[in-house]
Computed example of a mutant assay.
Amino acid sequence: MIEIYSWPTPNGHKVHILLEETGLDYRGHPVDIGAGEQFDPEFLAISPNNKIPALVDSDGPGGRPISLFESGAILIYLAEKANAFYPQESRVRYAVLEWLMFQMGSIGPMLGQAHHFRRYAPEPIPYAIERYTNEANRLYSVLDRRLGESHYLAGNEYTIADIAVFPWLRSSKSQGVDITEYPNVLRWYAEIAERHAVKRGLKVLSDKTLAFDRRARENLFGVRQYRRRP
Rank of each mutant, 00 (worst) to 15 (best):
L55N: 05
E157W: 02
D57W: 14
L153K: 00
G60K: 05
E21Y: 05
H116N: 11
G176P: 00
P183D: 08
D207R: 11
S172K: 08
P126F: 01
L68N: 02
G112C: 08
E20V: 00
S6I: 08
A35H: 02
L153V: 11
V204A: 10
A73P: 03
R195C: 10
L24N: 02
I76A: 10
Q175C: 12
L186M: 14
A128D: 12
G23W: 15
I2Q: 02
I160E: 03
F166N: 04
L75E: 00
D25Y: 03
E98V: 11
R118Q: 12
E181C: 06
A197G: 11
R214N: 12
A136V: 00
Y226T: 14
R229F: 07
K14H: 12
P124V: 12
D207T: 14
Y120I: 11
A45E: 15
W188Y: 09
V198L: 09
R200N: 12
W188E: 02
Q175I: 07
R27V: 11
V198G: 01
K173Q: 12
T22W: 01
R200G: 00
W188N: 04
T133P: 06
E157M: 04
A45C: 12
V185P: 02
L18K: 07
P61G: 08
M101V: 08
G105E: 04
L147R: 01
A197N: 02
L202M: 15
F69W: 15
A45P: 01
M1F: 07
E70Q: 15
K173E: 13
H13W: 08
L202H: 12
W99P: 06
I74D: 03
P126N: 06
P124M: 06
Y189I: 01
R228T: 11
G36M: 11
E181W: 04
K203A: 15
K81M: 14
P10G: 11
L186K: 15
L153C: 07
E149C: 06
G34D: 12
N134G: 13
P53Y: 01
W168P: 04
G105L: 04
Y152K: 02
A45T: 07
R146G: 03
Y120E: 09
V92K: 07
A161L: 05
P8I: 04
N83A: 15
F69E: 00
V204W: 05
V223G: 01
A84V: 00
L19C: 11
D207K: 13
L139A: 05
Y86D: 01
